[in-house]
Structure formats: C-alpha cells, structure tokens
Design a binder for these strands. Structure first.
Ligand code: MN
Ligand code: MN
Ligand code: MN
Ligand code: MN
Lengths: 218, 218
DNA sequence: TTTAATATTTAGATAAGACTAAAAATTTAT
DNA sequence: ATAAATTTTTAGTCTTATCTAAATATTAAA
C-alpha cells in the first residue's frame, strides 16, 4: 500500500506523462511536487523498489501498470470528492481542490464505491475532468481548447485546463460556467484575443483565457 | 495546527480523562494508543510545548482548554463522518469507525460546517454518542447502563459503551438497535446475567452485554 | 524504613520524507 | 571534440514518530 507522499508522486508522474507519453524527468517531477530534485530522486527509488515505476538512472521514469492503477485510483477519489463537495455540500468549484487533496488519500474501497453510487455514478468532476471508473478506465472526451475554435463556430464550455481558484473566479465573474454556450465572433491576430458572444452578450477574452477553456463544438 | 499523531494522542487523553477527571498517566496513554510508554513520553513533551496539555514529570497529564478544544473538534468530525457513512453511504454501524479514524483528520472548517448542515445538525452518532457542537460543547445525556436497570423497568436502548464490530454485530444478530425497547424481567445473582423482553421476545443476556449497553428509562 | 516492584523518563537507533551542498552524468554550445 | 551548462544523483543533515534498553523516580511490600 502506497503512503500519502508516494500517492502524490504517482499522481504527479501520471499527469506529467498524460499527453506526451514519453518518460518523465526528475526535474519535472520535482517542479510539479514543489520540491527539490534530490527529494524526487529519493522518492523515485522508493517507487521503483515497490514496482510502481520503471526507472533507469539518468533516464527518467515511467509508470508501470500497477503504478498507473494506483495513480488513477487517487485521481478517481479526488474527482468524486470534488463533485460531492459541490453537489452536496455547497462548495463552489474554486474551493474544492484543497480539501480533495486531503480526501483523495482516505483508504476504503467501500467508501469510494458508495460515494460513487451516492453521486449516481458521475463521469465528470466540477471542472469537467473525467472521473476514472472502478477498473481504472478513464473516459477520454473529445474536448478542444477554445483557442482552436474557428470563427463563427458555436460551442459549449465543457471544462477548464487551468483549475486554479483565480481562473475559476474569473469565469464566475464573467458568467462562464460548464454548459455555457459560446460563439466565436472574431480573433485578433495581434494578441490572439477573441471576441465572443456569451449568453447573448458580447465579450472579449485574452489569449490566456482562450487557452484554458475546453469546449465542445455544438 | 496539530499533526495527525498529535490529534490522536489528544483524543486518547480526552477519552481517558472523560469519567475520572483526574490526571492521566503515561502508561494509560501508551496503552490506549497501542504504543510504548517511551513514545508516549516523547509525544507528551511535544503537546506540552504546544500548550495543549499541563504536564509535570512523573505527575501525569491534563488537557488545557486549547487541548480540550482540539480533541473535541476531532471527535466532532469523527462522529459526523460516522453518521454520514451510515445515513448516506449505506455503511452499517460496525463498519464506520475505521474510516472515520481517517476522515476525522481532514482539515477544513467549511467541510465540517457543511457536513453538519447536510446531516441536519445531528446531536448523536450511530452509536448513540453525542456530537459536540461547533463551539466544543458536548451535550451530556443522562443514559445509564442496562446492568443498573431495576427489575420490571422498561427502557430504551440509546447507546453502546463498547462499539467494536464484534459487539455491534452481536446486537444486530439479536435485533437490538438504538431505539429498541427493553424490559428487564429478572436478574441472575450468580453470574449477573439478565432476562429481558425485547420486541416481545424473551432473551437472556450476559453480564458483559448488560455492561456495554446504554439505556434511557422510558 | 529499607527493599522490591512498578512507572516514567532518558539515551540512542531506525525509517520516512524533506533539505543543502557537492559529485557525477548528460546535454548543449563553441 | 572539447568545454560549458544543465540535469541528476549522492552524501550528509534535520524533523517526526516510533522502538529497545537502561537509568531514574515513585509506589507498594516486607
Ligand atoms: Mn482538484
Ligand atoms: Mn477537478
Ligand atoms: Mn468511532
Ligand atoms: Mn461512534
């Protein structure tokens, strides 16, 4: 059974190898964990000893199947708890992450199973991120960044790439939520800002915002 | 802020000083924590340094007001979570303790507050134990042990003293739950066993059982 | 009131997880 | 191809929480 710290490292490695599925560097892990490379090396050795990662000195790291399952299990719990907090306990989507970081480490198969049932087997968390199932399968959605959407296309907001409170609060302030319909009016080539129609109101967003909102063409 | 281990020690000290409100010995703490006296001494020093207990070498230990508040806060969370698991997640009362031992350490004022509201401000956990309020006040109930009930008295089961799975499963098996009405028919002086009428069925229980069931005279 | 038994504390070790500083390997630049 | 820069690992230290063994204090017995 993995310790709390080991679980956090596994999650970090999983997220780092999500897109580019190549090996993950010690430095990348250290940076994501907000720790020093030497600490990352120490932990890498432990995870290797436990058969949770493949590792060769100086060659980087890759999750084994066991490591991937452990990581996904933690992510599953994280996202179920986030949804619980929003749907049942009146948390807003910018308040849940910190608490979920603690709750994701609670060890009880039954708890996870029953929480899943209580929430009626959800497939997405409050940020639009997919919730892995009990077997470790992660539903892959075909969402794309708002920045990629063509002019005059209509789309629906389905997720956020940046889920920091700062960004989520920005979205709240400008009445952008999951499910909100967005029409791309035009794009400014100078600064990559975009003119949008949101809820029949015209608004301009920056490149930063456009690159952190996931949408689905509708 | 207290660490997980410190919180567990505070809880142990609180429970040990609950009835006899005298000082608590190092050995008693070690025994309750299932650890060695030397480890208890180490922790006692830490808790003293943090102002959570009064302590004089060889003289035992007593919670300060801050220590009591910290202990009660953990107990509050423990009992709220136990109730949540039973009322919302289909756990039975003999399955909740272990998970609650983990959940009680989650740090989030809002989480505790909202969980309390979600459960509609309960006053008792699934074992009939009182749930302290947000200010650290513990409602003291006037329950007594079934062993003390006089012949031909009618009473209602309102709590358990021993809340181990073994005992709770015994009660389940014999259809004794919180709220069950019990009439004391007679007492055997030889072994202190008692003849009871429970749900109109006559049954004999041992001294051990009689000393671990709390009732209220009805 | 000495002695014996028990309880408590101290001393020294260990393991997990983190750190700094320094060494070694790899990658990039000249 | 060699030197410089960067990355990664190692060596040694620190903190928390635990342990065993030994020393000290307290309590009970003779
Ligand atoms: Mn999160
Ligand atoms: Mn999320
Ligand atoms: Mn409990
Ligand atoms: Mn309880």
């Amino acid at each position: 059974m993995a310790t709390l710290s080991e679980e956090n490292y596994l999650k970090a490695i999983f997220h780092l190898s999500r897109h580019d599925k190549t090996v993950v560097s010690t430095n990348a892990i250290a940076q994501k964990m907000e720790t020093k490379a030497s600490s990352a090396t120490d932990m890498i050795k432990k995870l290797f000893e436990k058969g949770l990662i493949d590792y060769e000195k100086y060659k980087g790291v890759k999750l084994t199947e066991n490591g991937r399952l452990a990581a996904v299990s933690v992510i599953r719990k994280h996202r179920l708890w986030e949804l619980f907090l929003v749907d049942k306990l009146r948390f807003s989507w910018d308040e849940v992450h910190e608490v979920a970081e603690q709750l994701e480490h609670i060890k009880s198969k039954k708890l996870t199973r029953e929480l899943d049932a209580f929430l009626e087997f959800p497939t997405e968390d409050p940020h639009g991120d997919p919730i892995p199932d009990a077997n470790g399968n992660m539903p892959s959605s075909q969402k794309l960044l708002l920045a990629k959407v063509k002019q005059l296309q209509r789309c629906i907001c389905v997720g956020v790439k940046d889920s920091t409170p700062k960004f989520l609060q920005y979205l709240d302030k400008h009445k952008i939520a999951l499910g909100t319909e967005i029409t791309v009016l035009s794009r400014e080539s100078y600064d990559e800002s975009m003119a949008l129609k949101i809820n029949n109101i015209q608004r301009t967003i920056s490149k930063e915002v456009a690159h952190n909102l996931f949408v689905k063409i509708s």
